[in-house]
């Protein structure tokens, strides 16, 4: 009797384990639809990109992107759950399936795209690494011997060392885990310089008690194309995320905003008709989404320009210029493959 019982238990364990393994093999889109929401990995707190208000509601450019994907998949921006991650945690969270989408000002590099089992889907913010210093320093070339606060596990950590080595200067890295700790270290005087992507520096500067005593140096020492990424090997999900970004940029090119899209829906312009899903055949079937996927994104979140201005541009305290992030037709780099 005992033996049969043991055998039964053993076989149950084996079956359960093999079932666990097979459950893992399903696509991200199916998984997301089944659970009814998207688990989106975001930054724990950078104003303009992802920050929570006193009610715990997240907002920002990166958060808007999570919402846009939810709008495309579910037609409902509330169907997102957020996981706030440190720079160190983010790739493991994505690799392990804890999150479906990483939208956390992450630089697209060859190593990350090829070695980590993740794929970058595009660039939602063209950034560059800069330095935040106390007034008095005029150029990054004067920083020989300085102590530099920096966040662990970022490309900034590597660029910083490249820059100082290339210019034959010494520095002392003070490597903190969280963004909040780096700004605290800078404010308390543990370091002379805070280095990060320039967009973040402008945002963090506003968090200082006396922002006017610090400034962002004009030098940009690296290219930092920031973009959302997904797990490698799931083409369907990859394409949904990539085209969500394209749809936001394309909407700006077409002049579609959350305010006027209903009005323009009945327009005769064929590219607008294709965009809102009024023309059969170019809708969402290929992406395994509804025909109104792009319409939902713009209606509920807005186009790229709207999201930019609202979160980091003229409509926000950061007042960052569009610069590289303007549309290609206006001297910037934002360019979308056509929706047709």
């Amino acid at each position: 009797m005992k033996t049969t019982k043991l055998l039964a238990i053993a076989s149950t364990v084996v079956v359960a384990v093999s079932m666990m393994a097979s459950a893992h093999a399903g696509g991200t889109l199916d998984g997301v639809k089944k659970k009814g929401f998207i688990q989106c990995g975001i930054n724990s707190g950078v104003p303009g990109f992802s920050i929570a208000n006193d009610k715990g509601e997240w907002s920002g450019l990166d958060v808007d992107f999570c919402k846009a994907v939810a709008a495309a998949v579910f037609g409902d921006t509330t169907k997102v759950k957020y996981t706030s991650l440190t720079a160190k945690e983010r790739f493991t969270a994505l690799q392990s399936g804890e999150i479906d989408l990483l939208s956390r000002n992450t630089t697209w590099t060859l190593t990350r795209d090829s070695n980590l089992g993740i794929s970058f889907t595009g660039v939602n913010y063209y950034d560059g690494q800069g330095f935040l210093v106390n007034n008095g320093v005029k150029s990054a070339k004067e920083l020989d011997g300085a102590s530099v606060c920096i966040q662990a596990g970022t490309t900034t950590e590597l660029n910083l060392s490249d820059y100082f080595r290339a210019n034959n200067m010494k520095y002392e890295p003070i490597t903190y885990d969280k963004v909040e700790e780096t700004i605290k270290g800078f404010e308390e005087g543990r370091c002379d310089v805070l280095t990060s992507d320039q967009s973040q520096l402008y945002a963090l500067r506003l968090q200082l008690k006396e922002p006017e005593k610090a400034e962002v140096l004009p030098e940009v020492i690296s290219k930092e194309p920031l973009g959302p990424s997904v797990r490698q090997g799931d083409e369907d999900w990859f394409k949904i995320v990539r085209w969500t970004l394209f749809a936001m940029v394309e909407a700006e090119e077409l002049g579609l905003t959350s305010a006027n899209i209903d009005e323009k829906k009945s327009s005769a312009d064929p590219s607008v008709k294709r965009f809102v899903g009024a023309e059969e055949g170019v809708g969402g079937q290929g992406l395994k989404l509804g025909n109104e996927w792009a319409y939902n994104i713009v209606k509920q979140v807005g186009n790229y320009g709207e999201s930019f201005e609202r979160n980091v541009g003229s409509g926000s305290p950061l007042k960052i210029e569009r610069g590289l992030n303007a549309l290609w037709s206006k001297g910037g780099l934002q360019y979308a493959a056509p929706i047709r």
Partner: peptide, 24 residues
Amino acid sequence: ATAIAYPDLVAVFAGTTLNQSGQA
């Protein structure tokens, strides 16, 4: 140590190195 930027094994190896190389 990782809470206060002291470069111990967990901070520099299980932290930064893990993140840069992805070999969790």
